[in-house]
């Protein structure tokens, strides 16, 4: 038994155990913390299957941003309130059993007939020179399957908008003024973020990195700023925020449509591909960062939508009295 296998086994086992522990927590606050740990272990397992891009994204978005969002949301609903209705035992056991059987079948099938994917690795390599990037993952994301990525950016935009719809007139408690230590931390970390974010974008052309990771980092900066002494993003005009939110999607879509003149939707001419990809990555980083920040603010109840917005029922025409 090689050490690698031992490690993998332990990792897989702890993933399952952590998942069960997460599910068995009594309060949402505890569950979120467990979930974040689970996300970190998951990132580790991505690393084990040689997918550093995914590991980075998982750590940044799956664990970091998601955890932050959930914690921010819990600010509004309460950390320590226990989950409303625990599932009764007669349901829990069959569900557990069913999941176990499904997992068993899945692992049996996979173990029995797994072969190294006959996939597209070769093809991907073969056409790399035409893509304008040296990182195969970036090539897949922004070149071969750019259409998927375009729609993914759309998903993020739409998610941010959904958070907007959720944030009603009821706003959360205002943020307390941070202490001197936090201010000091901000002063040091802000430049670091500003350094790392562009680096991440730029490195995506060659190595793990790119818009999603950079955007997640940017949203970290956003969250810090919101917590900090001058939460200036909150004072931005709504219109500016909206422009920022849509920037990546707009630019991506416009670039894609611009390529119609070259005969293909999203088909960059090979000699300009690098520039286009960089441009799109930058715009998407900004938008991803902004939309995740907006979600953070929205989940925490800090998005002050117009208080005049009434829910649907009140906006309806008043009922006419029946004779």
């Amino acid at each position: 038994m090689s050490p690698g296998l031992v490690f993998d086994t332990v990792l897989a086992f702890s993933l399952v155990v952590l998942a069960v522990i997460t599910l068995r927590q009594r309060t949402p606050g505890e569950a979120v913390v467990q979930l974040m740990i689970f996300g970190l272990l998951l990132a580790l397992s991505w690393l084990r299957v040689d997918a550093p891009d995914l590991a980075l994204t998982e750590a940044a978005i799956g664990s970091g941003v998601t955890g932050a969002l959930l914690l921010a949301a819990l600010r509004r609903t309460g950390f320590g309130k226990p989950f409303p209705a625990p599932v009764s035992a007669w349901l829990r056991y069959p569900v557990t059993l069913g999941c176990a059987v499904l997992g068993l079948i899945l692992s049996l099938v996979v173990m029995q007939s797994w072969h190294h994917p006959a996939g597209l690795t070769e093809l991907t390599r073969q056409y790399m020179p035409e893509t304008g990037t040296e990182n195969p993952v970036t090539a897949v994301i922004l070149n071969y399957r750019a259409y998927d990525t375009l729609l993914e950016i759309g998903v993020l935009l739409v998610a941010a908008l959904s958070v907007y719809t959720l944030s009603g007139p009821a706003s959360g408690t205002p943020v307390k003024p941070p202490g001197p230590i936090f201010r000091f931390y901000m002063r040091i970390m802000t430049p670091v973020f500003w350094l790392v974010v562009p680096y991440m974008v730029w490195v995506g052309g060659r190595a793990p990195g790119g818009a999603f990771q950079a955007g997640a980092l940017l949203s970290g900066l956003g969250a810090l700023t919101l917590l900090g002494p001058s939460p200036w993003p909150m004072r931005l005009r709504r219109r500016v925020v909206r422009w920022g939110l849509t920037l990546g999607f707009t630019l991506f879509l416009a670039a894609a449509a611009w390529m119609w003149q070259h005969g293909n939707f999203l088909g960059y001419p090979p000699e300009q591909a690098k520039n286009w990809i960089l441009l799109i990555e930058i715009a998407c980083t900004l938008s991803i960062g902004i939309s995740l920040t907006v979600m953070f603010a929205g989940c925490a109840g800090w998005l002050h939508e117009d208080p005049k917005i009434a829910p649907e029922s009140a906006a309806q025409a008043p009922k006419r009295r029946h004779p």
Partner: peptide, 19 residues
Amino acid sequence: VTLELISVAGVGLILIAGT
């Protein structure tokens, strides 16, 4: 991806009711 796009948008659309 597209199914996710539609679903997330659907969530936002339902939330517009605000109740």
